Amino acid sequence: AQVHVDGVTYDFDNPEEAEKFAREMAKRKGGTVEVKNDQWHVE
């Protein structure tokens, strides 16, 4: 699973880890999390 944050792509073998990371980053940035094509996007 991939997580996109500020133009940087992070690869995770485990989708749950990807989701956890995406939500944590969004919380830190005060942003939102979107899922597109099985990829997490932190805005």
Score class of each variant (00 low, 15 high):
Glu17Asn: 04
Glu17Arg: 02
Glu34Pro: 04
Gln2Thr: 12
Ala22Asp: 00
Asp13Leu: 10
Lys27Asp: 09
Thr9Val: 14
Lys36Phe: 13
Met25Asp: 00
Gly30Leu: 05
Gly31Leu: 11
Gly7Pro: 01
Val5Ser: 05
Glu24Thr: 05
Glu34Gln: 13
Glu19Leu: 09
Asn37Ser: 07
Ala26Tyr: 02
Glu17Lys: 05
Tyr10Gln: 00
Gln2Ser: 12
Glu24Tyr: 11
Phe21Met: 01
Gln39Pro: 05
Glu24Asp: 08
Glu43Asn: 14
Asp38Met: 12
Arg28Asn: 08
Val8Gln: 10
Thr32Gln: 09
Lys29Val: 15
Glu43Thr: 15
Glu17Ile: 06
Asp38Lys: 11
Asn14Ile: 05
Gly31Cys: 15
Gly30Asn: 10
Gly31Pro: 03
Gln2Ala: 08
Phe12Tyr: 01
Phe12Arg: 00
Phe12Met: 03
Lys20Asp: 08
His4Trp: 13
Gln2His: 10
Val42Gly: 03
Ala26Asn: 03
Arg28Met: 13
Tyr10His: 02
Thr32Leu: 09
Arg23Gln: 08
Met25Ser: 02
His41Gln: 07
Val8Trp: 11
Ala1Glu: 03
Lys36Met: 10
Asp13Gly: 07
Phe21Asp: 00
Gly31Arg: 06
Glu17Pro: 00
Tyr10Trp: 08
Gly31Ala: 09
Glu19Asp: 07
Val5Thr: 03
Ala26Lys: 02
Ala1Trp: 15
Phe12Trp: 01
Asn37Pro: 05
Val33Ala: 11
Val3Pro: 00
Asp6Phe: 12
Phe21His: 01
Lys27Phe: 11
Lys20Arg: 12
Glu34Val: 15
Lys27Trp: 10
Ala1Ile: 13
Glu19Met: 08
Ala22Gln: 02
Arg28Ser: 11
Gln39Phe: 06
Glu16Asn: 06
Val35Met: 14
Lys29Gly: 08
Ala18Gln: 01
Ala26Ser: 04
Gly30Ala: 06
Gly31Met: 12
Val3Ile: 03
Ala1Ser: 13
Glu16Met: 10
Trp40Tyr: 12
Gln39Tyr: 06
Gln2Gly: 03
Gly7Gln: 03
Gly7Tyr: 03
Arg23Phe: 10
Gly30Pro: 04
Lys27Val: 11
Ala26Phe: 02
Asn37Lys: 08
Trp40Asn: 03
Asp6Thr: 02
Lys36Tyr: 13
Lys29Glu: 06
Thr9Ser: 06
Asp6Ala: 07
Val35Trp: 15
Arg23Gly: 02
Ala18Ser: 01
Lys36Trp: 13
Glu34Asp: 09
Asp11Val: 14
Glu34Ser: 15
Lys29Leu: 15
Gln2Tyr: 09
Thr9Arg: 11
Val8Arg: 12
Asp13Ala: 11
Thr32Arg: 13
Val33Glu: 03
Ala18His: 00
Asp38Ile: 06
Gln39His: 11
Gly7Asp: 04
Val35Pro: 04
Asp13Met: 09
Glu16Ser: 11
His41Met: 09
Val5Phe: 11
Lys20Asn: 10
Ala22Arg: 06
Glu16Phe: 11
Lys36Asn: 09
Asp11Met: 14
Lys29Asn: 13
Ala1Asn: 13
Glu17Ala: 10
Ala26Thr: 02
Val42Ala: 03
Asn37His: 10
Val5Ala: 06
Gly30Met: 06
Ala26Gly: 03
Glu16Gly: 07
Ala18Leu: 01
Lys27Pro: 00
Val5Met: 13
Asn37Trp: 07
His4Ile: 14
Glu16Gln: 10
Thr9Leu: 08
Phe12Gly: 00
Asp13Pro: 12
Thr32His: 12
Arg28Lys: 13
Glu19Trp: 08
Thr32Ile: 12
Val35Asn: 10
Glu17Cys: 15
Asn37Phe: 09
His41Glu: 06
Val42Trp: 04
Gly30Phe: 07
Asp38Thr: 08
Val3Arg: 01
Gly30Ile: 03
Gly7Glu: 02
Asn37Glu: 09
Val33Leu: 11
Ala26Trp: 02
Glu16Lys: 10
Ala1Lys: 13
Val3Thr: 02
Glu24Trp: 11
Gln2Trp: 10
Glu17Gln: 09
His41Trp: 15
Lys27Met: 12
Gly30Trp: 06
Gln2Lys: 13
Val3Glu: 01
Asp6Val: 03
His41Pro: 03
Val33Asp: 03
His41Val: 13
Asp6Pro: 01
Asp11Ala: 13
Phe21Leu: 01
Gly31Trp: 13
Val8Ala: 08
Gly7Arg: 02
Asp11Arg: 14
Glu17Val: 04
Lys27Tyr: 12
Asp13Phe: 06
